[in-house]
Design a protein around this nucleic acid. Structure first.
Length: 480
DNA sequence: CCCCCCCC
């Protein structure tokens, strides 16, 4: 058999994102390029000479890679796979679930067109650190050039070894020590390291109770499998890690402790929660490829907020900012403490508006930015909002809420183009004050009273007196 | 060890 790639292999994969036994898929042989160890997985570029696709090998392939049968610039036949979306990103990546080795390393990267001119350019590209070192040693005189072939025919295991030994000690540590999946952690096993994305960050707050006082903040961590865990830091640890932890970034974490999570306060699906103390190790995994999902939003359209009123479940919303109030200070009843608050009105494609109250630092920081740019109708995406019943439906931030202005996500682009083309010219009604026939669930609050009104007014068995009473109540709410 | 999330 000819040792080459299948024609249009990448197009075939893209056209069949999740093949099953009934799909007919022609043979897919690709060249493995840029094979490297990322965390605990091997990743590579699958190439058919024309197109490339980021890909990941299954963990059970690792031994074959280490023994050298799968090589960089070698050929593999992909027997089964799924094509996965990276949320909020346009590119796809290929998860190889079954494959076999066709050929060890070829001399060159396969290109569909013969590119003699370009070949020189390729050689002049900035070299990877290991390549530069390799050549520098061989080429002491500056005359004898090391054949490129010797570099390309190195097995993945060699490359990985060289990558490790040439790296900064901290990253080498991260590569060498096994990354544990979050599901494998428990309170009884201490020596682990995880690689996680920070998918939620609470604000720092102080507390005072019978057991003492201090400061605390919580984060939510997500790993490559999508498993989540909440981690808590107190006092010294809270101060040490508060700035270091940034929403959306990826970290290696070790030396934390696990305990059984309190069901009552659980915000993620995990039997355990993590505590990090001042001796825990948190290291950012910067400039590294990773397949950990990005922070995921579950946007609820404004006209669908009804069922969430006064519920425990939090919502994410995305909308166009219609207006922003100045900050006001609210005196908390229980202890007379002043808390900054700023209200804004947002609208979305359902042509409904809702009032969102930003509290504490969100009112001051991101709130001020919104205030200053209110005339530009920015898009806001807000994660983890509580849905209250003030004026029917109201939204409020919590400590763990986050506000993103003009986020680079498809939903924001869609909303922007809708608003610019037709939204800004159309009339919008407040979800709180308007009747919303689509939302009939929920059992209390003024909002539900008005839903009941609709049922009653459309029920012929009721007397005029009751209908009038309900109409009166509705009228009063509107007047308010 | 927190677990509150405020006001009209």
């Amino acid at each position: 058999m000819a040792k080459s790639v299948s024609q249009d292999a990448i197009s075939t994969i893209l056209a069949n994102p999740s093949p099953d036994s009934s799909s007919y898929i022609p043979e897919i042989v690709v060249q493995v390029l840029d094979l490297k160890l990322t965390g605990n997985r091997y990743t590579f570029n699958a190439s058919d000479g024309k197109m490339k696709l980021r890909a990941i090998f299954p963990s059970n392939m690792s031994s074959e890679i280490i023994t050298g049968s799968v090589q960089n610039k070698g050929l593999v036949r992909i027997l089964d796979y799924t094509l996965n979306d990276i949320p909020n990103k346009s590119e796809k990546y290929l998860i190889v679930t079954k494959c076999e080795v066709v050929s060890p390393a070829l001399e060159t990267e396969i290109k569909a067109e013969v590119e003699t001119e370009e070949h020189d350019t390729v050689l002049k590209k900035p070299k990877l650190e290991y390549e530069a070192r390799y050549e520098a040693k061989a080429d002491v005189s500056g005359i004898i050039l090391k054949p490129k072939q010797e570099i390309v025919s190195k097995s993945a295991a060699q490359i990985v070894h060289e990558q490790r030994t040439n790296m900064a000690p901290s990253s080498r540590m991260a590569m060498t020590r096994r990354v544990h999946p979050l599901v494998s952690l428990n309170p009884y096993q201490g020596n682990w390291m995880i690689k996680v994305r920070l998918t939620s960050k609470g604000n720092m707050r102080t507390y005072k109770n019978a057991r003492g006082e201090g400061c605390v903040f919580n984060v939510e961590l997500t790993d490559e499998d999508g498993t989540q865990i909440q981690a808590t830091m107190f006092n010294e640890a809270a101060r040490k890690f508060y700035e270091k932890f940034q929403l959306g970034k990826v970290y290696y974490i070790s030396r934390g402790t696990l305990k059984v999570a309190n069901k009552q306060f659980k915000t993620v699906q995990n039997d355990y929660e993590m505590t990090l103390n001042e001796n825990s190790v948190v290291e950012e995994a910067s400039n590294e490829e990773t397949f950990i999902p990005e922070t995921k939003f579950n946007f609820v359209p404004i006209d669908q907020l009804g069922p969430y009123v006064n519920g425990r479940e939090l919502v994410d919303i995305i909308g166009v900012v219609q207006s922003v109030n100045p900050v006001s200070n609210i005196k908390r009843r229980i202890d007379n403490e002043n808390i900054p608050k700023r209200d804004l009105i947002v609208a979305d494609e359902t042509k409904k508006t809702v009032v969102v109250s930003l509290w504490n630092e969100l009112a001051n920081n991101v709130g001020q930015e919104l205030f200053d740019n209110a005339d530009k109708s920015p898009i806001v995406a807000i994660k983890s909002l509580k849905v209250g019943d003030f004026q029917g439906v109201s939204l409020s931030t919590l400590g763990k809420s986050s506000v993103m202005i003009n986020p680079d996500i498809p939903e924001a682009k869609k909303l922007r183009s809708w608003y610019d083309s037709e939204g800004k010219g159309s009339s919008m009604a407040s979800i709180g004050l308007g009747l919303s026939p689509s939302s009939k669930t929920g059992a209390r609050s003024m909002y539900t009273d008005r839903v009941s009104l609709m049922h009653i007014t459309s029920n012929p068995s009721l007397g005029d007196e009751k209908v009038l009473l309900c109409r009166l109540k509705y009228a009063m709410i509107v007047v308010f």
